[in-house]
Write a protein that binds this DNA or RNA. Structure first.
Lengths: 129, 129
DNA sequence: GTCAATGCAAAAACTTTGCAACATT
DNA sequence: AATGTTGCAAAGTTTTTGCATTGAC
């Protein structure tokens, strides 16, 4: 019995916030959504993010710092995070060699590899100045 | 003015716990150290782990799950984490292609890349059975 | 003796959850 | 009408911190 998600005002606006921002954190989404729904609760934001992640409508970044960041871009791609300001930028690199590595790792360790996460860290152009 | 770390009984035993365990979490280290120092506090464990990390005596894993895990092996290497039992295993893969990627990422994004993190996730042999 | 380190407890930071009221289907 | 969803507040988890006391040098 699959549970059907209902399209509530809250969910709708959370999704719009996801699409309008770059890799926002839950807190950032909360702040954004509150401009249009002042009474929404942080709990609702977290619940929705988890559900949308489970249904595969959004993804959660890994290797991007201390707390969760979310992404409405579902294609396989990687990220750089600025160690100073926390800014996250998409990287256009070919996942092929990582895919190869997955296979190699599976063979070497006996694990059934289901995913990998890669993240780069450094200082962004703005923070260099 | 560099602060000199003092070798306390606590620090010594924490380091031994680090070396005797495989990628332990703070909580695991706490449990282990408490066998020999029953009155040590969790705060002391966290403080020491942070200090040892800062002095470069140990490293903190990334991409290894929800909470921090530590490593007394300082050489550059990567990890697989079991999604079921949380077990972490070292992987013997060549970091060369990742190093190349770092350069490519720097060029493409304008970031000064200082590090990258890579982690693989899957099901370990024990959990498959 | 000096000052880093400890134990303890309180708090911070992020996230989850219980529950009655409410809204979508 | 049925049940998924919300707001609120309380609580859970992991990690940090303030402070008086202790201990390494």
């Amino acid at each position: 019995m699959t549970t059907v998600l209902r399209m509530t005002k809250q969910r709708e606006i959370i999704l719009e916030a996801l699409e309008g921002a770059s890799h926002p954190s839950a807190e950032t989404i909360y702040a954004e959504v509150r401009k249009r729904l002042p009474h929404i609760s942080l709990g609702t934001v977290y619940r929705n993010l988890r559900q949308l992640k489970e249904t595969g409508d959004i993804s959660e970044l890994q290797c991007s710092g201390e707390y969760s960041r979310f992404d409405s871009n579902l294609s396989r791609h990687y990220h750089v995070t600025c160690s100073l300001c926390g800014m996250v930028m998409d990287i256009d690199i070919d996942p092929a060699s990582l895919k190869e590595m997955e296979e190699e790792v599976g063979k070497k360790t006996g694990f059934d590899i289901s995913s990998h996460c890669v993240g780069f860290h450094g200082i962004c152009q703005d923070c260099k100045g």
